[in-house]
């Protein structure tokens, strides 16, 4: 089941927090929802769920959420770090969420075990750490086995083992044909977790595509040879953009390694190194959203 967000918009006073934002969350993969602080990610997620009032609409499998007979079987959400009453036990919290779809008690035990909270199921979560709170939030999101998940910063407060577990769990969940939308600031983690990304800045869509597409556009080829001075014009002539990086070699954008190798071979230039230098998601993200951060740090002295 895919999620289609269409022309979402929302203003707070004179500030346009989300502006004509349209994208699709495909099923079968994890979609990362990225953007700097204040980019409008959380507002957009609330708009998608109808929690905030604004422009546009969001369709879950072609229908607005309210038109589905059991919304909790359509989308599971985890939008706040501690979305529960501190005085209600973890199990009772899940019992409450289970009512809409008449989820059986056995499923509550199942998800508690899945997120590792069985031992504290009858405890009141006021003393839960942030990581335990995140696990309870995730348990609530997956309780009714929804076909879509929307999670806002679910990895905050989790230890490395839990983050790895979350990554594998979400990838497995998506692989069953579910649409999974995850916002996060942990770009390295998102590169491992997500296949598809939606990047926004200042409420507007910057990129909607696969991570491979996104990163490959900003990757280049490093070539170290016996005669860079003769090789560089040949590469430019073949349509590449080249930058001499000294001892590192020549950075070539616009040509694949095979093409660079063939050009050098044809010219009789020996090559010592020919490697693809892949940009990280973080580097790509910084390039894409460079001036889109609403609450940026000052320049370090």
């Amino acid at each position: 089941m895919a999620i289609d967000a269409e022309h979402l918009g929302k203003s707070f006073g004179s500030v346009r927090a989300v502006d004509d934002l349209s994208f699709t969350v495909p099923d079968g993969v994890v979609t990362g929802f990225l953007g700097p602080n204040g980019a409008g990610k959380s507002t957009a997620m609330r708009l998608m769920l109808g929690l905030d009032r604004g422009d546009g609409r969001t369709l879950f499998d072609g229908l607005p959420l309210g038109d589905h007979s059991h919304p909790s079987r359509v989308v599971g959400t985890h939008l706040d770090a501690r979305p529960f009453l501190p005085g209600r036990t973890a199990r009772d919290h899940l019992r409450m969420l289970a009512t809409e779809a008449r989820v059986p008690a056995s499923r509550i035990d199942e998800v508690l075990a899945l997120v590792g909270l069985t031992e504290v199921a009858n405890d009141r979560p006021k003393s839960f750490s942030l990581g335990m709170a995140q696990r309870l939030g995730l348990a609530g999101a997956i309780l009714a086995e929804p076909r879509c998940l929307m999670l806002d910063e679910p990895a905050n407060g989790l230890d490395p083992q839990s983050i790895q577990w979350l990554r594998e769990f979400l990838r497995h969940y998506a692989s069953n044909g579910c649409a999974v939308l995850v916002s996060s600031h942990l770009l390295h983690e998102m590169q491992l977790m997500a296949d598809h990304v939606v990047v926004i800045a200042s409420g507007r869509l910057i990129v909607d595509g696969t991570i491979d597409e996104l990163v490959s556009q900003r990757s280049d080829v490093i070539v170290r040879s016996t005669d860079s001075a003769r090789l560089m014009p040949l590469l430019v002539g073949a349509g590449a953009t080249v930058v001499d990086e000294g001892q590192t070699g020549v950075a070539v954008a616009g040509l694949a390694t095979d093409e660079v190798g063939r050009i050098a071979f044809d010219a009789g230039i020996a090559i010592f190194e020919l490697t693809e230098r892949r940009a990280s998601l973080e580097e790509t993200f910084m390039q894409l959203t460079g001036d889109g951060q609403q609450f940026a740090f000052g320049e370090s002295s």
Partner: peptide, 8 residues
Amino acid sequence: RITLAIFP
């Protein structure tokens, strides 16, 4: 927000 996501 959980309540209204479950009951839109």
